[in-house]
Design a protein around this nucleic acid. Structure first.
Length: 469
RNA sequence: GGUCCCAUCGUCUAGUGGUUAGGACGCUGGCCUCUCACGCCGGAAACCGGGGUUCAAGUCCCCGUGGGACUACCA
């Protein structure tokens, strides 16, 4: 009796750039799928393109995955380190007559492709070298002998069965002249050897799948299950790219997005659970499965991501948000040594910001030594008429029995009542005195966070400011 | 050109033969209110087209149309 095989998924990016939105969603789906089913998630770096692969890209991808919370159980495994294994597999196919050497030049091939296209024929390899019985020579490549008859069916977990006629397929190159395997061959060998049971990837790979299935069969390996997730498009319905705005996961971190928001946004692109919009990671692990993944492409909608970010921002415990804010505050030179004060600041601001950047920007007045008054605000509210009122407030404040939000609120109400003025007649001058601006958190909130001393000090400085103008 | 995939509000989506076609973002009217947010209540907004099948079709089938992917010695 054999134990049930553990489910194994993988994410296999090529290190030719940062981790982008589409790749992140593919990784997320793989991660969630394996977690949901108690399987393993493997990370493999497909770096067989020696020209375009870089270590920086590898690092950037790993960083982005870590930031998103997509931990891997095995790897990273570097495909380029496995070339000997790939070559051995190629050799096996050659020995078994399932693959052959080809010496057609790229130029000639390109020429023939053009001609075929111009003549309205399908541009596939013309079998020139197929039965020449060539051996390895400098510059030769290895081609897979693809069956010319029969059909190959991809039983896609998301799209259902997809049928391909084998004669549509090609004698694809499996080993390049430089001795490195091509993508379609390396994935098959690696996925087979790593025991990948479920290949979940972008649906730009569906047309590769029948060739890969044929390779699995030629190699005598079990064919895994496939699930092709739809693409992510830009607003113009074209494949998402830089011209649609930020596509790098880490760019979103820098723009002040929370990983929870990005994950939540990404998972809803193509997957749903009834009407639910907000999911914790735990919920996702419990709920996610391929049967609820849609088949159609989705347009990336930055507004909704922003809304989710705002949602997480206001739902986050202030103390935790302080940690996320650190790099942004440091970049602005705020003195943030007092953790309690920082948390109070965040508490005041978190329902008023859509990103960490916005939050950090709006926190400036809390950390400034001297309030910088906006010209218009000062002109309108820091006047000889309001100065006496401000003075009266500053004077009364120390006598407050209850220096709390409620206490301050009550004080201000009785203050304006006694003077027969509206609350806003004192609130706006106070706001400008305290923050320099006409838009800010509530007066009571600010006064609490700032504390009595700073509050009085700022009011007095505002009065002095009036005297000077 | 060929092969393959896809098609519900502007966008993300629910829907699994019988619904006033639901939710969310965005937009918008109002309420709350010391400003700004938050929050709450309301509104406009969709089944690509044409044929079938069926008593009944957004849901099933076919054909169009539109979009996308692939068609490399990239992955």
């Amino acid at each position: 009796m054999t134990a049930p095989e553990t489910l194994r998924t993988r994410f296999a990016p090529s290190p030719t750039g940062y981790l982008h939105i589409g790749g992140a969603r593919t990784a997320l789906f793989n991660w969630l799928f394996s977690r949901h089913h108690g399987g393993k998630f493997i990370l493999r770096i497909e770096d067989t393109d020696q020209m375009r692969s870089t270590d920086e890209s590898t690092r950037a991808i790993l960083d982005a995955m870590t930031w998103l919370g997509l931990s891997w159980d095995e790897g990273p495994i570097f495909q380029a380190e496995r070339v000997e294994i790939h070559r051995a597999h190629v050799q096996r196919l050659v020995d078994e007559g399932k693959a052959y050497y080809c010496t057609c030049s790229q130029e000639l091939l390109e020429e023939k492709r053009k001609q075929a296209l111009a003549a309205g024929r399908k541009p596939k390899y013309d079998f020139t070298c197929r039965d020449r019985g060539l051996t390895r020579t400098p510059g030769s490549v290895v081609r897979f002998r693809c069956p010319e008859i029969g059909t190959t069916i991809v039983h896609d977990l998301i799209k259902g069965p997809i049928q391909f006629s084998n004669d549509e397929l090609d004698d694809l190159i499996i080993e390049r002249a430089d001795g490195y395997p091509t993508y379609n061959f390396a994935v098959v060998v690696d996925d087979a050897q790593m025991g990948i049971t479920h290949v979940i990837r972008g649906d730009d790979h569906v047309n590769n799948t029948p060739r890969q299935i044929l390779l699995y069969q030629a190699l005598g390996y079990a064919v895994p299950q496939f699930g092709h997730v739809p693409m992510i498009l830009g607003a113009d319905k074209a494949r998402l790219s830089k011209r649609h705005g930020a596509t790098s996961v880490m760019a979103y971190k820098e723009m002040g997005y929370l990983p929870e928001a990005l994950v939540n946004y990404l998972v809803r692109l193509g997957w749903s659970h009834g009407d639910q919009e907000i999911f914790t990671m735990e919920e996702l692990v419990a709920l996610f499965d391929l049967d609820a993944v849609g088949r159609s492409a989705a347009v990336f909608n930055p507004e909704k991501l922003l809304w989710l970010n705002q949602h997480y921002l206001k739902a986050y415990p202030a103390e935790l948000l302080v940690e996320n804010l650190k790099p942004f505050w440091e970049a602005r030179g705020y003195p943030v040594s007092d953790a309690r004060y920082s948390a109070r600041v965040v508490y005041d601001l978190q329902s008023r910001a859509k990103t960490l950047v916005e939050l950090a920007d709006s926190a400036a007045f809390y950390f400034a030594d001297a309030v910088a008054y906006e010209a218009e605000a000062a002109a309108k509210f820091l006047t000889p008429e309001t100065a006496p009122q401000l003075a009266a407030v500053a004077e009364a404040l120390p006598g407050l029995a209850d220096y709390s939000r409620e206490g301050i609120e009550a004080f201000l109400r009785s203050f304006v009542e006694a003077r027969g003025i509206k609350l806003k007649a004192i609130a706006q001058p106070l706001r400008v005195a305290l923050t320099g601006r006409t838009v800010s958190p509530g007066i009571d909130e600010i006064m609490i966070t700032l504390g009595l001393a700073k509050t009085q000090d700022r009011i007095r400085k505002a009065i002095a400011f009036v005297g000077r103008h």
